[in-house]
Simulated assay, not measured.
Amino acid sequence: MKVFGFCGYSGSGKTTLIEQLIPLLTGRGLTVSLIKHTHHAFDLDQPGKDSWRHRQAGASEVLLAGGQRWALLHENREDAEPTLAQLLSRLAPCNLVLIEGYKHEAIPKLEIHRPALGKPLLFGHDPHIVALASDMEIATELPRFDLNSPAPIADFILHTLEL
């Protein structure tokens, strides 16, 4: 599996760009998966539902299955947060895994930057950022893309990863 990441501050447009890229990539016959890292506590389950009650009772994993999808909920009660490599090993085989977050991982990444947010650029501090996407011109020697034009970004990812 090839891996490509997206980094940038909250509100920069990472999720929106990835949402636009996925159909462009799958439209070329690739199977694409995604890992999104969050620093916030989250729960896909609903309090009071059977699966929630089973986790609260101490089950280490609960797998929810239906006709259209399944989800595995794993509790990290006493374990450290899994590494990106550990999470990648849990995915079904695919051509490409897009990574949102994990900005400190040693994977090729596209920085998403909106100057209007008033946040600093990341690429000067991360040698794994291979390109920049923004809604304004930014002086850099890195390949630079218009954040509002996803097709050239998809081409760049495919070329970079030799897909």
Score class of each variant (00 low, 15 high):
residue 1 M to K: 14
residue 1 M to R: 12
residue 3 V to G: 05
residue 4 F to I: 03
residue 5 G to P: 01
residue 6 F to G: 03
residue 11 G to K: 09
residue 11 G to D: 05
residue 12 S to R: 05
residue 13 G to R: 03
residue 13 G to Y: 03
residue 14 K to G: 06
residue 14 K to I: 06
residue 16 T to C: 12
residue 19 E to A: 11
residue 19 E to S: 11
residue 19 E to W: 04
residue 21 L to D: 00
residue 22 I to F: 04
residue 22 I to K: 12
residue 23 P to H: 07
residue 24 L to N: 03
residue 24 L to T: 02
residue 24 L to M: 08
residue 25 L to R: 00
residue 27 G to I: 06
residue 27 G to S: 09
residue 27 G to A: 10
residue 29 G to M: 01
residue 30 L to F: 15
residue 31 T to H: 11
residue 32 V to H: 05
residue 32 V to Q: 04
residue 33 S to W: 06
residue 33 S to A: 10
residue 33 S to V: 04
residue 34 L to Y: 07
residue 34 L to V: 13
residue 36 K to P: 01
residue 40 H to F: 06
residue 40 H to S: 04
residue 42 F to H: 08
residue 44 L to T: 12
residue 45 D to C: 05
residue 45 D to W: 02
residue 47 P to T: 09
residue 49 K to T: 11
residue 49 K to H: 09
residue 50 D to A: 04
residue 50 D to F: 02
residue 52 W to P: 00
residue 53 R to D: 12
residue 53 R to C: 14
residue 55 R to D: 00
residue 56 Q to H: 06
residue 57 A to N: 14
residue 62 V to N: 14
residue 64 L to E: 12
residue 65 A to M: 04
residue 66 G to I: 07
residue 68 Q to W: 09
residue 70 W to P: 03
residue 71 A to L: 11
residue 74 H to S: 15
residue 75 E to H: 14
residue 76 N to V: 01
residue 76 N to E: 08
residue 80 A to K: 14
residue 81 E to S: 07
residue 81 E to H: 07
residue 82 P to M: 15
residue 82 P to L: 15
residue 83 T to W: 13
residue 84 L to N: 01
residue 88 L to P: 03
residue 89 S to N: 11
residue 89 S to H: 11
residue 91 L to N: 07
residue 91 L to A: 03
residue 93 P to S: 13
residue 93 P to W: 13
residue 94 C to T: 06
residue 94 C to Y: 02
residue 97 V to E: 03
residue 97 V to S: 03
residue 101 G to C: 05
residue 101 G to E: 05
residue 101 G to F: 03
residue 102 Y to R: 09
residue 103 K to A: 05
residue 106 A to S: 12
residue 108 P to T: 04
residue 108 P to S: 05
residue 108 P to Q: 02
residue 108 P to I: 02
residue 109 K to N: 04
residue 110 L to V: 02
residue 113 H to V: 02
residue 115 P to C: 01
residue 116 A to E: 09
residue 117 L to G: 03
residue 117 L to S: 06
residue 117 L to R: 08
residue 118 G to Y: 06
residue 118 G to V: 06
residue 119 K to G: 10
residue 120 P to R: 00
residue 120 P to A: 01
residue 121 L to R: 10
residue 121 L to E: 02
residue 123 F to K: 00
residue 123 F to D: 00
residue 128 H to D: 11
residue 128 H to L: 08
residue 131 A to I: 07
residue 131 A to S: 12
residue 131 A to Q: 08
residue 131 A to F: 10
residue 134 S to T: 08
residue 134 S to E: 05
residue 136 M to S: 05
residue 137 E to V: 14
residue 138 I to L: 03
residue 140 T to L: 02
residue 140 T to Q: 01
residue 141 E to Y: 10
residue 142 L to C: 10
residue 143 P to F: 00
residue 145 F to K: 05
residue 146 D to F: 08
residue 146 D to K: 06
residue 151 A to W: 08
residue 151 A to P: 04
residue 151 A to L: 14
residue 152 P to Q: 02
residue 154 A to C: 01
residue 154 A to Y: 00
residue 155 D to N: 10
residue 155 D to S: 09
residue 156 F to Y: 13
residue 156 F to I: 10
residue 157 I to P: 00
residue 158 L to A: 07
residue 158 L to E: 11
residue 160 T to S: 12
residue 160 T to A: 12
residue 162 E to Y: 08
